[in-house]
Computed example of a mutant assay.
Amino acid sequence: MKRQAGRPRKNSVPVAQEFRGKTSREILGEQVGESQDQIRRYIRLTELIPEILEMVDDKKISMRPAVELSYLPKEEQEILYDAMESEACTPSHAQAIKIRKFSAEGRLNEDVLLSIMSEEKPNQVEQWKIPKNRLKKYFPSGITQQKMEETIIKALELYRKREKSRER
């Protein structure tokens, strides 16, 4: 019997026999050095509208928020994209989760989007850092960071009151 080119015989061994029991995500992940969860995320990104996907490619939106946004219907993604463009901001992961939740509940609209997008993101809050070794001489050993912060704030409040009274 003559074999047709490119077609396996009925009794031939499958090419990927050594991958038995593994998902395609696992196989691909091993081949490219990524976890199967990361592969799942990449696949999920294909649900994004091209404009938002381009923002992911340009590193304007991180992977995890983008995955959350990929669950939005295309029409809502378009509204979101317009909001991101007009407000010149992108959602954090927490904001993307909120957006997805509102969408799932059927309560997502432009006003809700703008409200969520205007929330202050934790990484946008300016922080002051003082090395612990500069402060430890003022506190007993074993004191918690929270107690140190409370004490410092009280000390600054007292300092401020004293400075105000001197100005009078």
Score class of each variant (00 low, 15 high):
residue 125 V to F: 09
residue 78 E to Y: 01
residue 154 K to I: 11
residue 9 R to N: 05
residue 69 L to A: 00
residue 44 R to K: 07
residue 86 S to Q: 11
residue 89 C to P: 03
residue 71 Y to P: 02
residue 17 Q to I: 15
residue 108 L to Q: 02
residue 28 L to W: 07
residue 5 A to I: 15
residue 144 T to H: 05
residue 22 K to L: 15
residue 95 Q to A: 00
residue 163 E to I: 14
residue 129 K to N: 13
residue 69 L to K: 00
residue 131 P to F: 12
residue 111 D to G: 05
residue 117 M to D: 01
residue 56 V to S: 02
residue 43 I to H: 03
residue 46 T to S: 10
residue 4 Q to G: 10
residue 138 Y to D: 07
residue 110 E to W: 02
residue 100 R to Y: 03
residue 111 D to M: 10
residue 17 Q to K: 14
residue 83 A to H: 03
residue 105 E to N: 07
residue 166 R to M: 10
residue 143 I to K: 09
residue 68 E to W: 05
residue 143 I to Q: 07
residue 121 K to L: 13
residue 140 P to K: 15
residue 131 P to A: 14
residue 38 Q to V: 09
residue 161 K to C: 00
residue 55 M to A: 08
residue 20 R to H: 08
residue 156 L to S: 03
residue 67 V to I: 06
residue 62 S to W: 07
residue 112 V to W: 04
residue 109 N to T: 04
residue 24 S to Q: 10
residue 110 E to S: 06
residue 34 E to S: 08
residue 166 R to Q: 09
residue 103 S to P: 07
residue 102 F to I: 00
residue 13 V to H: 05
residue 145 Q to E: 13
residue 149 E to H: 08
residue 39 I to M: 01
residue 118 S to F: 03
residue 78 E to Q: 08
residue 153 I to L: 14
residue 117 M to P: 04
residue 17 Q to C: 06
residue 69 L to M: 00
residue 46 T to F: 07
residue 24 S to R: 10
residue 35 S to P: 04
residue 38 Q to T: 11
residue 141 S to Q: 14
residue 70 S to K: 04
residue 69 L to C: 01
residue 125 V to C: 05
residue 18 E to R: 14
residue 27 I to K: 03
residue 112 V to F: 06
residue 75 E to W: 02
residue 79 I to T: 15
residue 154 K to V: 11
residue 14 P to K: 13
residue 53 L to R: 12
residue 13 V to N: 03
residue 152 I to Q: 03
residue 26 E to C: 10
residue 84 M to W: 02
residue 128 W to K: 06
residue 7 R to E: 12
residue 112 V to M: 12
residue 56 V to A: 01
residue 99 I to K: 01
residue 126 E to D: 13
residue 25 R to I: 09
residue 152 I to T: 09
residue 21 G to T: 09
residue 85 E to I: 12
residue 85 E to R: 09
residue 153 I to Q: 08
residue 164 K to A: 11
residue 93 H to N: 13
residue 119 E to T: 11
residue 32 V to A: 02
residue 74 K to Y: 01
residue 148 M to N: 04
residue 67 V to P: 05
residue 140 P to M: 13
residue 136 K to T: 15
residue 92 S to E: 04
residue 10 K to T: 11
residue 77 Q to H: 01
residue 58 D to W: 04
residue 23 T to C: 09
residue 152 I to G: 01
residue 144 T to V: 05
residue 98 K to P: 04
residue 137 K to T: 12
residue 90 T to Q: 09
residue 158 L to W: 08
residue 24 S to M: 12
residue 62 S to I: 00
residue 26 E to Y: 02
residue 16 A to Y: 14
residue 21 G to L: 08
residue 67 V to Y: 02
residue 58 D to E: 10
residue 130 I to L: 15
residue 152 I to A: 06
residue 104 A to G: 05
residue 18 E to D: 15
residue 84 M to P: 00
residue 124 Q to C: 10
